[in-house]
Design a protein around this nucleic acid. Sequence first.
DNA 1: AACATATTCACCTCTTGGGGTGAATATCAG
DNA 2: CTGATATTCACCCCAAGAGGTGAATATGTT
Lengths: 101, 101
Amino acid sequence: MLDDTLTAIADPTRRAILARLATGEARVTDVARPFPISLNSVSKHIRMLERAGLVVRRVEGREHFLALDPRPLDEAAQWIDQQRRLWSRTLNELEKVLNDA
Amino acid sequence: MLDDTLTAIADPTRRAILARLATGEARVTDVARPFPISLNSVSKHIRMLERAGLVVRRVEGREHFLALDPRPLDEAAQWIDQQRRLWSRTLNELEKVLNDA
DNA sequence: AACATATTCACCTCTTGGGGTGAATATCAG
DNA sequence: CTGATATTCACCCCAAGAGGTGAATATGTT
């Protein structure tokens, strides 16, 4: 799941979609409008965000409303913070390498 | 840069390499040893980690010593934390969607 | 029924990631 | 010089991401 989450947020278009949804629920078409790419491409990005669990969908008639689920981000933030703590021990090694270069 | 960082840490092999380097400096061969894949593949993963700025290299004779640079993680952590704060406003919308499903 | 809207499905292309192998390069040890 | 070690380079293959177009499906409107 971490893999899917990190892959999902690694793409700038998908990060922009998430930022848009942070302003509130929106339909697929609404999400797609600002982008210079086709509706279809946006639909595929949304599917990847759903696979990562970052976006949930509520179907109402022919309209699909999208909302954010922040929970998968917790795992990602946890991994990053843990690594940052572990790596601080090795900063002297980093400096050795940087000085050499 | 954020793209490269997130792409780099989205792969489990690369996360394992980073975890290995968190225990201290190591040569390419040392890093590669535990993995069931070829030395060449590990070398390519390391190149991606270098492109993301997460790993720096110090060449000493024929040996290449690798060390971590945690700084790119700061930007990633910052983006995630910011989004988590922004998204908390929309949690009621999420519940609406979840209840519907 | 007829038409428009919202979204996806099915296919195509191009690029990139992840894996492999074998050769090249550079360095170290006899 | 010879041989072993460390790493990369130059290819190959396959899967997946990112983009496109056109058709299909489902729903709403008149």
